[in-house]
Amino acid sequence: CGFHLRDKLALPADTPPVQVISTTPFSELVTILERNLRNAGATVAPRRQDMTVDAEAKMARLEVLSERWGDLPIAIDEQGRAQEFSLRYATVFTFRLADGRELVPQQVVELSRDYVSPPEDATGTSTEREILADELRREMAASILRRIDSVVRADLARAAAAPETPPPAASPDATPPPSP
């Protein structure tokens, strides 16, 4: 039915390293994105402080422009008490090539995980919410890199089809543990 094993991402030799930046200070998402990029075989640029400006100019940049959390009650019981919550995590990101061209246009990724919290016994709500948050961060990193991967593949396929423009440089393969 047309499905085939995902083939190797033929990245050109001069693929510059990828720099991951987030406007949110202390972002744990950046740590996970950098690890996934390394696991996928990309070279990850060092953090911004210890790098010269012109070195930074030759980087491809994965920019996380905004990270937001939300925890909304989605089910109320007959006494008006919240029974079920939806933990929501949203980021705005864009992926630029070394020459500044926006390969993946600025877009929003919003994920959510629901969890039950009985009002009369809230034991364990905090730990469940904290673990769901970790899972949402890993899922967000996977979702961002999946989008970049599919756009890069499409770009490489188009470039291969019309070879006169040099294929763009970017990160290759998607990360190992993708879950929707």
């Binding site: 406007t23 202390f26 937001r68 925890d71 980021t91 600025q106 877009q107 929003v108 919003e110 904290e130």
Partner: peptide, 22 residues
């Protein structure tokens, strides 16, 4: 409808509220 309203996907530094991080 969205945590990041489509009408302004331009990030606003003012809405950085780390206390929302679970």
């Amino acid at each position: 409808l969205y945590l990041v309203p489509p009408s302004n996907t331009t990030p606003d530094p003012d809405d950085y509220d780390p206390n929302l991080i679970p």
